[in-house]
Design a binder for these strands. Structure first.
Length: 954
DNA sequence: CAGAGTTAATCGGTCTTAAAAGC
DNA sequence: CGCTTTTAAGACCGATTAACTCT
């Protein structure tokens, strides 16, 4: 039973099922139908008939809907409501009162109230089989409504959910466990062995070092780790490791010492600044400077750090309970953007055609807009409006604009503002910088690097770790994506007074900029951030955290994938359960089951509620009436805007029961604006998922299905051929995953032009080929009879007119080339003090054009071209062959470019595909990892690169 | 629900690559 | 003519920060 097929994501399973004609539910659930797997989802197999993702892609650009990214284009055209099918309008339905009165107790809560009634109405109208009495049915609902307000699950509800799943859990998944468990055990063993080995090595090294240094030592980090390991009493081997490691050190009392240090040292904690293995430094350099201190002072010692550093957490995994993230944390705070530099006096915006002088504060804001004149944002009315409102406010607060005569000017109309002078100035600046040349720019960069140096790294448990975004976000105009109601508002400059620093007690608190204070300094080791502030637009909290290469992020990434892998052990049961619950009499359960089906099959996001002052985007639970259309017999058309306002458009067959359910969920009185899943939200859904597996939530399905699909795709790649072929195959697999996750990118503005250019180029090659053939004909005219088709132009260029045009183009091009070359030579000559060439020389050179023209003329008349001397039929044929190859190459390149124009491979590579799959692929197929993982990814996924081998399985 | 983390597209710059120029 | 060097388009990369999930 536990064949690998059962592990297929629904993507595959349901595809197989639904392709079968009248699949019954029972047939569905057994999931053994092998059938084509991914292909069922693949646009190529499904798309043309059912309008799979292919259609989505195709549709996108032709639809008048902004393909991806910002919604500016449609906005510019003035019509916000282009989105007929998109359901992008505000959900009026949400607010719309519903006439029938519900029970009074719920009246206060409009949406819930509405939901409830809707569902009741639906139930009545559908005559949903009610094994439960209607009153019974109502009870949980009432409770739920109340419970929801209190944010606590109703006992009834919990019971209901649990009962069925418990027994099922037992029998359904049993079959899978032994195998999987065995695999896991094996895996664990391998890892542990490795860990043990490394531990040994480390110990050996340490001993050596210890003897050499002769004294105390112990990275605080290790001590810490082991301590935690002890606490949780985890895997014996690991524990052993920890203990061993610590042995030498623990009695050295690093912890106690440290603690003492912490307590006693509010002042110069420098000794503790670099705890851990930097004993050498600690010993040799008494690290004096606190403020300027640590990071810098350490640089000299870096060389040996570097080798020694490298904390391979994945080889030394102490299970922590996860709440404590560090014991010591040392860092230098955040880097603020440079203060605003006022524009030179002569650069002024104009109002109604007249230059006005702005107070600096307002000038800065005006400049924000001025700098964006050539972006799409500037054309977005919402953006402009929001900007202008804020601009006016700031202007008012700062004293207002003054005309050339010194009198106040009231800035009242956006239309009368002209930011062009500012724009021009910025462009000028850019050009200046460009003109600096490589050397100058290098110097500039060195300067910048120096300023950043001390923020680049921090010390977490004594280990040097890279900090991610240590720069405080600079002020500017908020670039909300999609139809964000607040886009264009002024994002204020963040003052130190708003920034809270989180740092180890033992560390020196970084000094705030002179004359300023921090909002607060805290020592919270249950979080990973180093600094935080609240952003003024949406009130969101921003954090400075460690880089993706850090151990903290690495470990959590690792855990994420392990969690997804664990889902393998539960997925069968989960699918069985929800397939069964699709028919539940309880509306809430039925909705939940349906949602789970969609999340599993289509990789939808959970879909939390959003407020009205955000862009109107949805995920699964927040789908509304207008986002789904049903087409008999079982096709569902999804059309909605997801995260980042990326359109999700898909026509897909679903199993009968899901189709039926969706129909019910859409039934009157529901209408545009109403929630499809009115009895479900993400919290409930996730709570339900927790019952199956600790830590299971909706998003895990995305990771699981993405990685699972990747594994499946990679398995199909034959291990043969050149590296570039295998690489291409990998990318194809990657692409399937990207499509599954609906990862898109905007078609670059130049795409169409590029495609046309390339097409023209290919035609040019075809023409060249034709000419070669004509040369052959000139050498041996008799061939034409033997093989007439061979000498005909390719159909793409079988067009007299085009050929004529092309000939003209070629002549022009040649003229151009000759002239340019002439000028260049001339310049060179003059530069070296010689006299330039004369026009006469140019004319001479252009003689060749005449010949070309003549050649084309006879060619057009006779269809023959005199081959160059020395040409033979064999040589020409070889050249034809070569030309064919070039054409082929260009064509496939064009195809790939066209196919990938809207697909973004990066996101899935970075976030969804277990990197160990890629590592496995590279090892097994002998593809250099560098081809697939760029530098930053190699760093980020170091744990995977060093721990997965060629047999690794997701 | 605020808070903490993860996921996402995009932007601006750099590096690659393939064709043209030079030898 | 065939090889190497130069050049420019455009692919690719990393940084950035918005937008999401989930507790």
């Amino acid at each position: 039973m536990s064949s690998s097929e059962d592990d297929r994501p629904l993507a595959a399973m349901h595809g197989a099922r639904t392709n079968g004609t009248s699949s019954t539910v029972s047939a569905d659930t057994n999931g053994t139908t092998p059938g084509p797997t991914f292909a069922n989802k693949n646009p190529k197999s499904v798309g043309h008939e059912t309008g799979g993702r292919f259609d989505k892609m195709a549709n996108k650009s032709t639809n008048g809907v902004r393909p991806v990214g910002t919604a500016v284009v449609p906005l510019v055209n003035g019509s916000v409501g282009d989105s007929g099918g998109l359901g992008r309008g505000k959900r009026k339905g949400r607010q719309a009162p519903i006439k029938e009165s519900g029970s009074s107790s719920e009246d206060s809560d409009a949406p819930l109230n509405k939901r409830r009634r809707t569902s009741n109405a639906i139930r009545k109208e559908n005559g949903l089989k009610q094994e439960e009495s209607s009153s019974d049915d109502d009870v949980p609902l009432a409770k739920k409504t109340a419970a929801k307000r209190r944010n606590a699950p109703s006992p009834t509800l919990v019971k209901r959910e649990k009962k069925p799943s418990a027994p099922l859990r037992r029998d359904s998944s049993d079959s899978d466990i032994p195998l999987a468990a065995a695999k896991l055990a094996k895996e664990k063993q391998r890892i542990e062995q490795k860990a043990a080995k490394t531990a040994k090595e480390i110990r050996a090294e340490e001993n050596k070092a210890a003897t050499a240094a002769g004294a105390k030592r112990k990275p605080a980090g290790n001590a810490n780790t082991s301590e935690l390991a002890k606490k949780t009493g985890k895997a014996p081997l690991k524990k052993a490791n920890g203990i061993k490691k610590e042995e030498s050190s623990d009695d050295d009392v690093p912890l106690a010492k440290k603690r003492k240090g912490v307590v006693q040292k509010p002042t110069e904690s420098t000794k503790k600044v670099a705890p851990g293995k930097k004993i050498k430094e600690v010993d040799t350099k008494p690290i004096a400077g606190k403020g300027k201190g640590k990071a810098k002072e350490e640089t000299p010692g870096e060389a040996d750090d570097e080798e020694e550093e490298e904390y391979k957490w994945w080889e030394n995994q102490a299970e922590t309970d996860g709440t404590q993230k560090w014991t010591t944390l040392v860092h230098n705070g955040v880097l603020f953007p440079p203060a605003y530099e006022p524009l030179p006096k002569h650069v002024k915006m104009k109002y109604a055609g007249v230059e006005v002088t702005l107070p600096v504060e307002a000038e800065e804001v005006a400049g924000f807009f001025g700098a964006m004149l050539d972006t799409q944002h500037a054309l977005n009315p919402t953006f402009a409006e929001n900007f202008f409102k804020d601009f006016q406010t700031i202007l008012k607060q700062s004293g207002g604009a003054k005309g050339p005569d010194g009198k106040s000017v009231n800035i009242l109309a956006f239309q009368k503002c002209d930011f062009k002078p500012m724009y021009d100035y910025f462009e000028e600046k850019k050009a200046e910088k460009k003109a600096l040349g490589t050397a100058g720019r290098k110097a500039l960069k060195a300067e910048k690097d120096k300023a950043e140096e001390k923020y680049l790294y921090c010390y977490l448990d004594g280990r040097k770790e890279k900090v991610g975004n240590f720069r405080v976000e600079p002020p500017g105009l908020f670039r909300g994506r999609g139809e964000h109601p607040k886009t264009g508002m002024v994002k204020a400059r963040v003052q130190p007074e708003q920034v809270t620093i989180n740092i180890g007690k033992e560390a020196t608190v970084p000094a705030p900029p002179p004359g300023h204070n921090w909002a607060d300094v805290i020592h919270d080791n249950t979080v990973t951030w180093l600094a935080t502030w609240k952003e003024n637009i949406n009130g969101n909290i921003k954090y400075v955290m460690l880089a993706a290469t850090s151990s903290l992020k690495g470990m959590s990434d690792f855990k994420k994938f392990e969690k997804a892998r664990e889902l393998k052990n539960h997925i069968d049961r989960i699918r069985e359960d929800y397939t069964r619950d699709l028919k539940s009499e309880l509306m809430a359960d039925r909705q939940r089951a349906t949602a789970m089906y969609l999340i599993d099959k289509l990789a939808l996001r959970a879909g939390n509620e959003k407020s009205d002052d955000e862009a109107d985007t949805v995920g699964c639970c927040s789908l509304r009436y207008e986002h789904i259309t049903l087409e008999l017999p079982n096709i569902v058309v999804f059309d909605f805007l997801g995260k980042d306002s990326i359109r999700f458009y898909q026509k897909t067959p679903v199993i009968h029961q899901v189709f039926k359910n969706l129909k019910i969920f859409k039934k009157a009185p529901k209408t545009k604006g109403d929630m499809i899943f009115d009895r479900l939200d993400t919290t409930q859904l996730n709570k339900h998922l927790q019952n199956y597996m600790q830590g299971l939530s909706a998003k895990v399905f995305r990771t699981y299905n993405a990685s699972w699909t990747m594994q499946e795709q990679l398995d199909e790649i034959p291990n043969e051929g050149a590296v570039h072929e295998k690489y291409a195959a990998y990318n194809l697999a990657n692409k399937k995953v990207a499509i599954l996750c609906n990862h898109q990118r905007t078609v670059s503005t130049t795409h169409e032009i590029m495609m046309q250019k390339q097409e023209e180029k290919i035609k040019g090659l075809r023409y060249q080929k034709l000419r070669l053939k004509r040369m052959i004909l000139s050498l041996e005219p008799a061939r034409k009879k033997k093989n007439p088709t061979f000498f005909r132009p390719d159909p793409e260029i079988d067009d007299e007119e085009w050929i004529r045009d092309h000939q003209v183009f070629l002549i022009e091009q040649e003229k151009d080339r000759i002239t340019k070359k002439f000028e260049k030579e001339n310049e060179k000559l003059r530069e070296s003090g010689e006299k330039g060439l004369k026009d006469k020389d140019l004319k001479e050179r252009l003689q060749i054009i005449k010949e070309m023209e003549a050649e084309f003329k006879t060619e057009n008349k006779t269809g023959k071209i005199d081959p160059k001397r020395g040409a033979t039929i064999e040589k020409l044929e070889a050249q034809v062959q070569k030309m064919e190859e070039r054409i082929k190459k260009q064509e496939t390149e064009a195809q790939v470019r066209e196919d990938n124009k809207t697909v973004a491979l990066g996101t899935s590579k970075i976030n969804y595909i277990d990197p160990r799959l890629t590592v496995m692929f590279c090892k097994k197929y002998d593809v250099p990892i560098e081809k697939i993982f760029a530098k930053t990814l190699r760093d980020k996924f170091k744990w995977a690169i060093e721990s997965a081998d060629e047999d690794w399985k997701f």
